[in-house]
Nucleic acid binder design. Structure first.
Ligand SMILES: [Mn+2]
Ligand SMILES: [Mn+2]
Ligand SMILES: [Zn+2]
Ligand SMILES: [Zn+2]
Lengths: 148, 148
DNA sequence: TATCAGATGATAAAGATTATTAAACGATTC
DNA sequence: GAATCGTTTAATAATCTTTATCATCTGATA
């Protein structure tokens, strides 16, 4: 690992009040130094090449830690919940980032998406899916209650 | 169940080449007659009130069948796959509906989303997340190969 | 009503994630 | 640099979710 990379990571951890460990360095790097959107299992396999004794649970735990700290993100809020929709009309969804509740929102509440350039060649566009993320009424209420 | 509802479902099944069974009727109704975005488990619990001997596997299998037929949809393409993103800059994703691969897309390839009306009261907006769904180059290629 | 492809229920298996806990480690202080 | 303390790790079990298998049953058709 380059020394600058090492120091960057060290400072990131300091800034977020996280202890610096070998495992964390490698886990973070396995994600941040490559362009893809990896699964915990893929990250585990990658890190294992350097740290053969690492455990998959450690990967899971630290990914959560990093996400909570804002050092990494998850691609989608929906990975853990298969949810079925009977509404076949084009519409949007309002999703709560706390409780992950989902509400329909009429299509014409948003102006249609406009492409300003070209998509990567070969990609056959089917549709734009817009998700409006935020905190739902119930969660806002319960959080303000907690903080008073 | 109302007779019209029963006939509607019967015709839907005909149109999609699906056998009509009690289980399917109740599973479909459990989703389509209520406004929410339910999980298989929730649907199972609902149907069980009418058909106590139904199996959870039947619910899963038929939800898949309905989705494949286009009678229901899934809220997100990402369930079951926790994917980590190290790109913290605002950006969009290109998602393949076949292989579910994910590519980053620069933010300014799309014009910013415009709200035309009001969000439901109490919802605290955090961000708009746009996903561009379609078929990726690789899947387009493999599908055209299959059909020649 | 008899036939049969397809659907169901029971169950096992697989896969993904979280909980538990003793041992090891990193940061801090001396 | 060694002692201390709180945190992190690895191993493992447990839990949840989803899929596979297969014998039995049912709906559709003649
Ligand atoms: Mn919906
Ligand atoms: Mn991304
Ligand atoms: Zn909420
Ligand atoms: Zn693809």
């Amino acid at each position: 690992m380059r020394r600058e990379t090492y120091n960057e990571f060290r400072h990131l951890c300091r800034a977020h009040n996280l202890a610096v460990t070998h495992q964390r360095q490698r886990i973070f790097e396995a994600v941040a130094s490559r362009p893809g959107h990896y699964s915990p299992e893929e990250i585990y396999e990658q890190v294992k090449q350097d740290l053969p004794s690492i455990s998959l649970a450690t990967v899971y735990k630290n990914l959560k830690t990093f996400i909570e700290a804002g050092m990494l993100r998850e691609v989608s809020l929906h990975h853990g919940a298969w949810r079925i929709d009977a509404n076949l009309h084009p519409h949007h969804h309002l999703v709560c980032t706390r409780c992950r509740s989902i509400l329909d929102l009429d299509q014409d509440l948003l102006a249609p998406v406009k492409l300003r350039g070209k998509l990567p060649s070969g990609f056959k566009l089917e549709k734009f899916s817009i998700e409006i993320q935020g905190v739902c009424k119930a969660c806002v209420a319960s959080e303000s209650r907690t903080h008073n």
